[in-house]
Amino acid sequence: MLRISNIEIYYGPVRAINGVSLEVPEGRIVTLLGGNGAGKTTILKTICGLLEDQPDTGVIEFMGKRLNGLNPEQIVRRGITYIQEGRAIFEELTVDENLLMGAYVRRDVHDLRRDRARVLNYFPVLGQRLYQLAGTLSGGEQQMLVIGRGLMANPRLMLLDEPSLGLAPAMVKEVFQIIKTINEEGTTILLVEQNAKMALQIAHYGYLLEAGRIVLSDEAESLLDNQDVRNHYLGIATEVAPKGVTRHKKKKRWR
């Protein structure tokens, strides 16, 4: 569905992405993992056209058509919705108006009503707060609003940027469960995450990005079992003491 071949992205003179290729097949959840500054968000922004004149080289194709050089307004009309990190809500609009904005490109009133009901079904708390200013919601509710608003566009492909950022663990689980349900109901998802464990549990396929390069890609289950991934991304590493005494303590690392 989405095919990225060998793209390079520059911020001014600095090359942020070095020849990345990846593919998101229809109906799947594909996750893109990596540490801070690896270039995950850069790739998403480039797909949806936010970075002008990028990618510098390489091709981005969606449903067999090139996206290079289109602006965000055109790309969203092709059926790609980008859900930004950090709860980019419209604070001074009500929850209801935020949802309406999510459906900005749609003209099909009947289906829109159905999708709105679906969103309120996923996130009942939004239904209770429809006429409240979005800025007064709690952090978790804002994240739900952002995802719900993205769904209002009824996208074919949803680009999700760090939905777990700054959420309580219980809330993270709930959000990921909903992402899984959204996928099962037919939306393809490209998920960018730092929380590798959660992401790999719901994803079908995963890519590991490091310093602007794909270093590893495999089925999600194999990645969960992969020793390197376990060490570097899942925070499960056994340290061997110099004298050969095994310490029964897990060392945690965040990358």
Partner: peptide
């Protein structure tokens, strides 16, 4: 609604189309 949204977050408004 879009006119009011733009002042708060133009980038997000563009992403909505």
């Amino acid at each position: 609604v879009a006119m009011r949204a733009i002042s708060q977050n133009p980038t997000t408004a563009r992403l909505m189309g």
